[in-house]
Design a protein around this nucleic acid. Structure first.
Length: 461
RNA sequence: GGCGCGGUGGCAGAGUGGUUAUGCAGCGGACUGCAACUCCGUGUACGCCGGUUCGAUUCCGACCCGCGCCUCCA
């Protein structure tokens, strides 16, 4: 039984898909005007775990994650670089794909682009106007929040409260200060599309609703994203989706917590962000992924060097278990992770990844001290459990030998092998002084040696 | 002002009305030529004050502290 925390109800609800034969999941993707930071990566990794779990539970899961490739921030970025919008968004879309692949995230079933769905958005806006939920004003089309009685139900606020805390100027073309833009006019030098309301471009929220309608249906099971999207983005999506199609739009809303730097929220506007691309220069993607999964997805996560080093150490110990000591152990190919396995039950409880990782360590400990005959099944168990989390996919030997961030002066593998060979000869000759000298030399270069029954093994880092 | 979240051992981070979280780091031991890895053992904990209870870190209330959202933001 899968339970998920639903922002709409404020509690953990039992997940029951509308159609068990086709579960639908939509996650808000990036606006591609820059490289993504680690905060953008958190929902990608978290919902990747959810996707893997759902795929285990249901025969078909349709997972869509959009690319926002039309937005005023993009227009501004183009003005800065002099690139065309297509060139700029294409460049950062490709970078996003690379970065997320490095984090071990599976490709979603569908990756829709906003600019491919302008027609769908226009159609949806026309529907909203026809139903009296939207109106045209000075070239803009706005959603009339007062036309929706329960507007504010996701973020738990009402229109009066929002007016009390209003801190922005109210545009004079709005009937109500809370009305939001569905379509806005473009200047001649701005990108735009022809519409019944003149040449213009879509507002921020309409793309997700239109793409959900196009690809997933009038009602979807799960919609995810960062907590900062609850209001206004998701609140407004609900307004559009519910009012246009007369449905509940989304049945389970899930929101991940922020990533903090020094206890403060990381965001593009504060300028304290860490780009995934930069972090990958110093840490394997799996270390970043592990760090992101080391705490519960709804908790804030303080991002630091210490966190990453601990993630690396924990991951090392799991890979050591896979590596084994002495004889190579082959994972049992017939093993299947049981439904009541601790890793599975932890994830079924609102994606408790921290507990799932703890369960992984328990399996690793059993594997380490198992009799040889029991090792293949335990190794398969560890790999299968980790697979649900998208971890331990690398070859253990390669994991240790390719690690980044080792010694100052990197040695190539052939040199290391030659030194290891020389040391083994010295050991045979009982020349331990020379043997230790070589070991220290390698250690200073970031290479750790390990003598096993099968010979000497070396690892970087 | 409105709404919401959190304070757990050196660090990270789960969880529970009474019994080991887990990992990293530390300490002792086994293994090893010495190490590393692994194994065995071990210490340190639940913000503050009340209440409920045989018993609360876990439930309830107040308080202190930190954080987030209130139309840029994952």
């Amino acid at each position: 039984m899968l339970t998920l925390h639903n922002t709409l109800t404020g509690q953990k609800d039992v997940f029951q898909p509308l159609d068990p034969e086709r579960v639908t999941l939509y996650v808000c993707g990036p606006t591609v005007y820059n490289y993504v930071h680690i905060g953008n990566a958190r929902p990608v990794v978290v919902f990747d775990v959810l996707y893997r779990l759902l795929a285990r539970l249901y025969p078909k899961v349709v997972y869509a994650r959009n690319i926002t490739d039309i937005d005023d921030k993009i227009i501004n970025a183009c003005a800065d670089t002099g690139e065309s919008m297509e060139a700029l968004t294409g460049r950062f879309t490709a970078a996003f794909r690379e970065d997320m692949a490095a984090l071990g995230a599976l490709e979603p079933s569908i990756t829709p682009l906003a600019t491919d769905h302008i027609g769908d958005m226009i159609a949806m806006i026309e529907t909203l106007i026809a139903k009296g939920h939207a109106y045209e004003s000075q070239g803009h089309v706005l959603f009339a929040v007062e036309s929706m009685p329960d507007y504010g139900k996701l973020s738990g606020r009402n229109l009066e409260d929002m007016l009390a805390g209003a801190r922005v100027e109210v545009a004079d073309y709005k009937r109500h200060p809370g009305d939001f833009v569905l379509w806005k006019p473009s200047e001649a030098d701005q990108p735009g599309w022809d519409s019944p309301w003149g040449r213009g471009r879509p507002g921020w929220h309409i793309e997700c609703s239109a793409m959900i309608h196009r690809h997933l249906g009038d009602v979807i099971d799960i919609h995810g994203g960062g907590q900062d999207l609850i209001f206004p983005h998701h609140e407004n999506e609900i307004a559009q989706g519910c009012c246009a199609h007369g449905t509940e739009y989304v049945r389970y809303w899930m929101h991940n917590g922020y990533i903090n730097i020094d206890g403060e929220k990381m965001s593009k506007s504060l300028g304290n962000f860490r780009l995934v691309r930069d972090l990958l220069q110093h840490y394997p993607g799996e270390v970043l992924r592990f760090a992101l999964l080391s705490s519960h997805y709804r908790s804030p996560l303080n991002f630091s060097v210490e966190l990453l080093e601990q993630a690396r150490s924990s991951l090392d110990s799991l890979y050591y278990a896979l590596l084994g000591r002495g004889r190579i152990v082959r994972a049992d190919p017939d093993y299947r992770l049981p439904d009541d396995h601790p890793v599975v039950t932890a994830l079924l409880d609102d994606l408790n990844t921290a507990e799932a990782i703890s369960a992984l360590h328990a399996v690793a400990a059993r594997l380490n001290k198992a009799e040889p005959d029991d090792k293949p099944a335990l190794k398969a168990e560890l790999l299968a459990g980790a697979g649900l989390l998208g971890l331990l996919a690398a070859d253990p030997t390669g994991w240790f030998q390719n690690k980044q961030g080792g010694g100052e002066d990197e040695l190539d593998s052939a040199t290391i092998d030659a030194l290891v060979e020389e040391r083994n000869q010295a050991k045979k000759d009982r020349d331990f002084a020379r043997a230790d000298e070589i070991r220290d030399q390698l250690k200073n270069a970031g290479v750790q040696l390990e003598d096993t029954r099968e010979g000497t093994r070396w690892t970087r880092g």
